[in-house]
Amino acid sequence: MEKERLLTVRNLHAKAGDIDILQGVDLTVNAGEVHALMGPNGSGKSTLAQILAGRDQYEVTEGEVIYRGKNLLELAPEERACEGLFLAFQYPVEIPGVNNTYFLKAALNAIRKHRGEEDLDAVDFLALVKERLQLVEMDPSLLSRPVNEGFSGGEKKRNEIFQMAVLEPILAILDETDSGLDIDALRIVAAGVNRLKRPDNATVVVTHYQRLLNYIVPDFVHVLIDGRIVKSGDKNLALELENRGYDWLEEQPKGRRKTPQRGALVS
């Protein structure tokens, strides 16, 4: 059976202000797949993730993104979310005064409304929340706190995956979810992501290091350098990057790079 095509990125170019960041990204994601998007700092990984989620501070100058048959770039961020796209933020935003549960209920019901489903009532919602909390072993007291306010780095990342567990996206993009997590938290978060995996959804894991991929095993690994995917492969590519760094994949500088890049830590 042919897998459903969820995302097609074709020749995507984007800039922030005057700086070219994406310079022709091509990427295809099908249902049931896990993709890892790797690359050195400043290569454009997070920019790609943010553009897919609808952040408007970047200007797309060329190319297209088709998400489940729709022109993704024409959709507002909330429409993308309602269509099943989810971005786990690298830096989750603190929202003082807005209760975590209230926020999540508003989000879930907005998505359900979009799908033509009834709002979940308080009882069903709380049951769902309780169940999904366990998936990421998150402290329930965080639910009644304002969104991310005063959360530790690890708690914020767990909260992202918890939101993902409740909202059940079709395409989840995890932007550096591993940064700031200790090894135990990493394992828990990864286990949560793995348990949310279904044949009809897909995950794109954006990461700098191979470490996370020990726990979330990718079907495909892509290396983004200077705003372009320069190499794709299977999970072994990640191991190779771990050993050799990114240098061997980088072209000679063309004067466009903002900062000199360094290789991975282990050589």
């Binding site: 609808g54 961020p77 979310a81 989810f86 933020f89 935003v93 929202i95 907005a110």
Partner: peptide, 10 residues
Amino acid sequence: FYLRSRGIDL
């Protein structure tokens, strides 16, 4: 943007 990315309209 964070709220919108979760499905809540502007």
